[in-house]
Simulated assay, not measured.
Amino acid sequence: MMSGTSMDGVDAVAAVFTNGRYQFIGRSSESYSTHLRSSLISLCSSGPDEVLRCQECGNEVAKIYAKVFNKLLEGTGLETSNICAIGAHGQTIRHSPQMGASTQLINGALLAELTKTDVVTDFRSRDLAAGGEGAPLVPLFHKCVFSGSVPRGILNIGGISNLTYLPALGSDADVFGFDCGPGNVLMDGWTEKINGTPYDHDGMWARSGKVSEKLLALLKKEAFFDLTPPKSTGRELFNLGWLESKLSDESVEDVQRTLVALTAGTITEAIERFAPDIQELFVCGGGAKNSLLMQELTAMNPARAVKTTAALGMDAQDVEGAAFAWLAKRFVERQPGNLPSVTGAEGGRILGALYPA
């Protein structure tokens, strides 16, 4: 089960993994209430009574996860006895790899109590303790289920965009991955501020504006874009305050259109700089539903086939949930879940902490 940087809700996937093969069983989801979402977003920066508010939100997130879990069982006909373990990512509110810390809110003990099922959570801490970025954690899963005969990129566009490079099967090249920069976080934040809606459906509002080359150039000056992998980021950097500090006289529509260009452009520039031999680019996450963003990526990558992961047999919205199910499986088997070539950790590590049923 996964709740990403967009902070819009929880996605769950029931899956069976046998001999390296992925079998989809079912999915469910639940949106956060407006109050919970605003409370979580407020915790991404300092404020009063943070400890108390973290405790309250951790409990509420666990309750939402339990609700999604029960919906998943009802929709698939599964029983709790059929579930080996729940992989529960929790909700990231702070990601500070330079401090060796990352905070995902969820009360794992409460989730185990409510679901009567083993819960594996806190996946990032061990990689961070081993000197890694703690993110991204899904590239090893991508390697196992998405590798092909040519070099591929698996691009997740959630709140933050992250790329996994998969060399062709049989190649001696390493799998690697990193955060590219903002995915939907700025587009969603600007839409919510101006229009009062959580996101720009299919990029329709952005289509009414035009790219401000001046603003785009200014946004791209952010030092994060020049860093070499391993690297990861979050709302600590890319937030409305960061955006608004760079605005001048642009129309609100032009800002939105420019943010689409920023997301697509920084992704493309990262590919060209660090993984230029990628021939196929498969997109997952909420950004895969934005046809304007997909059109922009396709136009900026004319030599690459740009599709969603549905072309590889996995719905774009299921990839992250399936990845954390797989990470829970790796924990149960006491197998490493990270890739040092991705996170920069000193070695492979078993990721997660167990709350028994």
Rank of each mutant, 00 (worst) to 15 (best):
S3V: 05
S6N: 13
D8H: 11
A12C: 15
V13D: 08
A14D: 00
Y22N: 00
R27N: 09
S28E: 12
S28K: 04
S29V: 08
S33P: 14
T34P: 09
S39P: 05
C44T: 15
S45P: 05
G47S: 13
D49W: 09
R53F: 11
C54V: 09
C57P: 04
G58N: 07
E60Q: 09
A62R: 04
K63P: 05
Y65M: 01
A66M: 02
V68G: 05
N70P: 01
L78R: 00
I83T: 02
G87M: 01
H89E: 04
Q91W: 03
I93E: 10
R94Y: 09
R94M: 11
Q98K: 15
S102R: 07
I106K: 00
G108S: 00
D118H: 00
T121D: 04
R124C: 08
R124M: 02
R126E: 07
R126I: 11
D127L: 01
G132A: 15
G132K: 06
E133R: 04
E133Q: 15
P136S: 07
L140G: 14
H142T: 05
F146V: 11
S149F: 08
V150H: 07
P151A: 10
N156Q: 06
I157V: 09
S161C: 13
Y165C: 07
L169Q: 12
L169R: 09
D174R: 10
F176P: 12
G177P: 05
F178A: 02
C180S: 12
G183M: 00
V185I: 15
G189M: 04
K193V: 08
K193R: 14
G196N: 12
Y199E: 13
Y199L: 12
D200F: 12
D202T: 07
G203N: 00
W205Y: 13
W205F: 09
E213R: 14
E213F: 06
L218N: 15
E222R: 06
A223K: 14
F225V: 06
T228A: 15
P229H: 08
P230L: 13
G234S: 12
E236P: 10
N239E: 13
G241L: 09
L243A: 11
K246A: 14
D249P: 09
S251T: 15
S251F: 06
Q256W: 08
A264R: 02
T266N: 02
E269T: 11
E272G: 12
E272S: 10
F274P: 06
A275F: 06
A275P: 05
P276L: 03
I278M: 01
Q279F: 06
C284L: 10
M294Y: 03
M300E: 03
N301S: 07
P302Y: 04
A303E: 10
A303W: 03
R304Y: 07
K307D: 07
K307E: 14
A311H: 14
A311M: 03
A311E: 15
Q317D: 15
V319N: 10
A322D: 13
F324Q: 08
L327S: 11
L327Y: 07
K329S: 12
K329L: 05
K329D: 00
R330Y: 04
E333I: 01
E333H: 05
Q335W: 03
Q335V: 14
Q335D: 12
T343Q: 10
G347R: 14
G348A: 10
L351T: 03
G352R: 02
G352C: 06
A353I: 00
L354T: 03
A357F: 01
